[in-house]
Design a binder for these strands. Sequence first.
DNA 1: CCTTGAACTCAAGTTCACTTCAACTTGAAC
DNA 2: GTTCAAGTTGAAGTGAACTTGAGTTCAAGG
Lengths: 159, 159
Amino acid sequence: MDPRDLLPMGEISSRSGFAASAIRYYEAEGLIEAHRSGGGQRRFERSALRRLAFIRAASNVGLSIDEIREELARLPDNRTPTKADWHRISKHWRARLDEQIAALERLKSGLDSCIGCGCLSLRSCAFSNAGDWAAEQGPGARLLPDSMRKPHPTRRTAG
Amino acid sequence: MDPRDLLPMGEISSRSGFAASAIRYYEAEGLIEAHRSGGGQRRFERSALRRLAFIRAASNVGLSIDEIREELARLPDNRTPTKADWHRISKHWRARLDEQIAALERLKSGLDSCIGCGCLSLRSCAFSNAGDWAAEQGPGARLLPDSMRKPHPTRRTAG
DNA sequence: CCTTGAACTCAAGTTCACTTCAACTTGAAC
DNA sequence: GTTCAAGTTGAAGTGAACTTGAGTTCAAGG
């Protein structure tokens, strides 16, 4: 590996659009790797840029850092994704986006019916009911999937 | 106001589905009001239940506490929403949901085209580009509206 | 050699929407 | 009058995904 091919922090930061602090954070979290110069500064391989692009795409889809780490780890060799990998992964994400879209549509149609009634009833109005609205209807019928609920801090599965 | 008509914390909590701590928080944030018993305990008017229903509906749509406060304050009289208010407001929210749905659709179709190319190019691929992707196209062309971006902690409008 | 900007580390801070805790008081029932 | 669930306060904690700051070192140019 010719050291001449390695890129310093500033280069990676400006080209990827991530702040240096974010990149350091990703390295600490094990999402990317870096070599070190004699004096301890990070030197990145060019492939880190693709990995960062992948990270941005994943986070746009709504994946957490943990999920992104898993997704990257699932790649054989833990390598930067190739075209074939990307094909498979993006199908997976597409489904996730479809689910999010469907959830918002459900919310909207609930809202539509509430325009008519103007009720906001605590009992019957799915829109204002507590967390488990539209249960009963079986799984999949929820208005919002877990991935779209507010990431409430210390909430554990209610007893 | 007959004190007999006022509800204690536990009642409001169980009927609204909010934890007592959440209700206290909302009061501290000025979203709801409460009378006090002689000994300093909260006593709520029945209308607080409707206000809480409104708060839940709003937060399901994705409004922040600040936005909910504003929305409530916009009601003439600062009263609990009537059917007519609800009609107007829910139209507003419907538009917001439509925007979110459209954003996800854009993201998905970007993903579709990326399945073909497998590029994840930092320059041309809208999916992996930094925050200002698809700018140039004018306002409204962004893949994700601000309301759907990750609420990045200490991010101020970049200079 | 000297300067200067880029980079380093580590700890602590930030936002949001609450929750949890500790220590104490109320109030309805018996 | 005693009991005890239910209520009170204020401070501190939570989790995610970084950022900020302080203090120090690196590396490239002149």
